[in-house]
Each structure stands twice: as C-alpha cells, then as structure tokens.
C-alpha cells in the first residue's frame, strides 16, 4: 500500500532524513520506533507533504506522491493525527471533528465515532482546546476516521497520557485495524507498540536501520534496548 524509497528531507539547512526505506501493507499496523531526533515525526510529515523540502519516492497505492501538495495527498487517502494533536482552539469539538474533508466513501459515520468516543458527544459544543489531553487525543484520532482515508498516520498518540487512556487508545487502534484501516504509528513506548502492531521499523539518524516482526519482539529485546537506549 505504501512504499517509501530513499526518502530525504530537509528543514532549511538541516538534512533530517537520509534515505528512509520501508513498506506498509494494506491492513497492517506498523510502527516507527527510535530515539528522539531519529526522524520519526519528520518521516510522518514527509509522507503528508508537510516538510519544506523532500526527495526520493513515496508511492501510495501505486501513485507517486513525493511532489504533491498536502491537500492532494490527503485526497489520495492518507490522513494524519499530528504529534501536537492539532486541535483548533477557535473551533468547537463538532467543528474540529467535521473539519477534515471526506476524501473517499468508507469513513466512519458520526454515530459510530460517538460510540467509539462517547466523551466527544457529551462535549460536542465545547471549545476544542478545553478538552482534557486524553479527550483531545481521541478527537484528533476520531476526526481522521471520518474522512475515508485508508492509511492513518498516528504520531505518538499515547504521549503524556494516563495509563487508562493509553489502554483506550490501544483498543481504538485494534478496533480500526479490525475495520480494515492501515495504520502507521510513531511510538516511543514499545511496550505499548507491541500490543497493537504487526511489525516495527527502527529508525536511527534519519534512516531505517532494522525491521522486527512483532512475533520476534520478545527475542529481540537486547537489540531493541540498544537501539532505543532504554
């Protein structure tokens, strides 16, 4: 479904990604693991067209997207839940939820979204940024489920959240996988990643250096500890 080859990205003068290669297959949940500054978030932003300069190949369902504007990438069927969540303060919860454009049929309808995230219904008319951190994260995930995009980029959805919320996000990811969505997940917390993902790519210094199937995660712990420095 997604094929990334030799992806390079720059912010101004700083060269962040140095030839990233990886694949995501339809229906998979794949994580990018790595230390801070390894290039995980930059990879996500590059997929979405949100970095100032990028080179290489990003083929999504056979279509080359490296030169496309972000809105056209979105319309091709990729949606992002950014690390900073990106909830709009001047919009209420419903407006935040309805903001992303529907790009294809097959997105979740509002009723299903409210079943998955009952809090959002209760707080429909609250200002987006008045929600708790966990609720904001739910909103950030919920709004891209509506769009019909088949590939969801989730950038550290568990960051800074209480364990009970992390569990809820884990359930949500398994639920959307069961519904046939494909997920690319950036995680610092590989214990959490192990509960939802099929495969893990490890990033270091702007490259993908290893791929570990989830089944082999337990036997690769020493290697992983070394990569992540934990």
């Amino acid at each position: 479904m997604l094929e990334v080859r030799g992806l390079n990205a720059w912010y101004g003068e700083s060269h962040i990604l140095h030839g990233v290669d990886f694949d995501v297959r339809e229906g998979e949940v794949v994580t990018l693991l790595g230390r801070n500054g390894a290039g995980k978030t930059t990879t996500m932003k590059s997929l979405m067209g949100l970095v100032p300069r990028r080179e290489g190949h990003i083929r999504f369902q056979g279509q080359e997207t490296i030169g496309l504007r972000p809105d056209l990438i979105a319309r091709a069927g990729i949606a992002i839940c950014p690390e900073e969540r990106g909830i709009f303060a001047s919009l209420n919860v419903t407006e935040n939820l309805m903001l992303p454009r529907q790009v294809a049929p097959g997105g979740l309808d509002l009723a299903t979204i409210y079943t998955l995230f009952p809090n959002l219904k209760e707080r429909a008319s609250s200002q987006g940024t008045k929600l708790s951190g966990g609720e904001q994260q739910m909103l950030a995930i919920a709004r891209i489920l509506r769009t019909g995009a088949r590939l969801l980029l989730l950038d550290e959805p568990t960051e800074g959240l209480a364990p009970v919320i992390v569990q809820q996000i884990g359930r949500t990811i398994r639920e959307i996988k069961a519904r046939g969505f494909t997920v690319l997940l950036v995680e610092q917390n590989f214990h959490f990643a192990a509960t939802v993902a099929d495969r893990h790519y490890v990033m270091e210094h702007g490259r993908v250096v290893d791929m570990i199937p989830n089944a082999e995660l337990a036997s690769s712990m020493d290697k992983l500890h070394e990569y992540l420095g934990v």
């Binding site: 990106g86 001047s90 454009r101």
Partner: peptide, 14 residues
C-alpha cells in the same frame, strides 16, 4: 478560522 490558526494542518486535511 482553522486555517488562520494552523494553515499547513488544514491543508493536510484535504
């Protein structure tokens, strides 16, 4: 209003 706050993200939403 959203684009006034964060135009790149709004563009990434199609």
């Amino acid at each position: 209003r959203a684009a006034t706050e964060n135009a790149p993200l709004v563009q990434a939403f199609g």
